[in-house]
Design a protein around this nucleic acid. Structure first.
Lengths: 164, 164
DNA sequence: TACATACATTTGTATATACAAATTTTGTAT
DNA sequence: ATACAAAATTTGTATATACAAATGTATGTA
């Protein structure tokens, strides 16, 4: 598996314009942080016309993935890509938009059961193909093999936790 | 160049526990967002005892990289890893801590000249070796070749902008 | 039963961020 | 000079987020 570079690349050193050569570890870290920001900007722009934030969209997709089965707050938090501390208020926003419902759990009244509404499903149905197309476009500069490799490298990077 | 997987990996599907297999493009995007959050959590924790945020630390390093030459706000913004809209207030915080100075530019009074102070340099001198060691540890699960490959893949991913 | 403890969520509050509007200065054409 | 548009930064404001404390509920145990 090779990475072919067919055109001039704007690499991270050119962007942050550092005078001295960065150590490889820092370069990779800065590049990851920078690229995530770049990506978030693109996603926000794409979602802007739908009046929903990335976080809200993410939660909606988690609930949709539950296939009818309600989720409680801690389940949502576990599965969220970025764990913000206040899932309660995030869900509040989705309720205000009519996309989700919240009821107190009968078996354990400390818990709440959160489900996506029909309106929420319709909304996702509209937005999903648009996001799918966006995701394909934004990753188009990488081949299938390169995307797989990127996934593996990111997985492996995080394994420091379990490998230390 | 191969990626060798020598131990059980916690990959992104296991983490977000999606019922259906994600398209490769979405998997890579989610993985990138997730990994960046994971990394930010680690960095924040590392910086916590120094009472400085990642953004402030980043600006301080940019100013230090100027080697005496003052920087104005737009230069800082360009080089910042994550472009928050309010560099003014970020610089305010660093001034309050005594780490940077701000003077109005003589030649163009719309501009401000921002420089790192001696105190700021001392602070960086203390914190830099600690961060260097942290960065080495956090990337330790990837080999030199893998780190280079990760850098190249991230650079190439962002090239969608110039390649469209 | 009574009590301590842990759990799940909510609320309060301080700070951070995004975005738009305002301010000040500069450059340029009339 | 005067007017006008653009540039660089600052300020105002609404929303988002982090963190701690509070609330209400369940569980274990003496």
């Amino acid at each position: 598996m090779y990475i072919q570079i067919l055109y001039k690349q704007l690499n991270i050193e050119d962007i942050i314009k550092t005078e001295v050569e960065l150590p490889l570890s820092r370069k990779a870290i800065v590049n990851l942080l920078y690229t995530e920001n770049w990506l978030m900007d693109k996603i926000s722009l794409e979602l802007k016309s739908f009046d929903i934030s990335i976080q809200q969209f993410n939660v909606l997709r988690i609930l949709n993935g539950q296939k009818g089965k309600p989720a409680n707050l801690s389940t949502i938090q576990e599965r969220m890509v970025s764990k913000m501390s206040n899932t309660t208020r995030l869900v509040d926003k989705l309720i205000a938009k009519g996309y989700v419902e919240r009821v107190i759990c009968k078996s354990n009244r400390r818990k709440v059961e959160i489900t996506i509404t029909e309106e929420g499903k319709n909304f996702l149905g509209k937005i999903n193909p648009i996001m799918q197309s966006f995701e394909d476009r934004i990753t188009a500069s990488l081949s299938k093999e390169e995307l797989i490799m990127l996934n593996e490298l990111l997985n492996k990077l995080r394994n420091i936790d379990y490998n230390h």
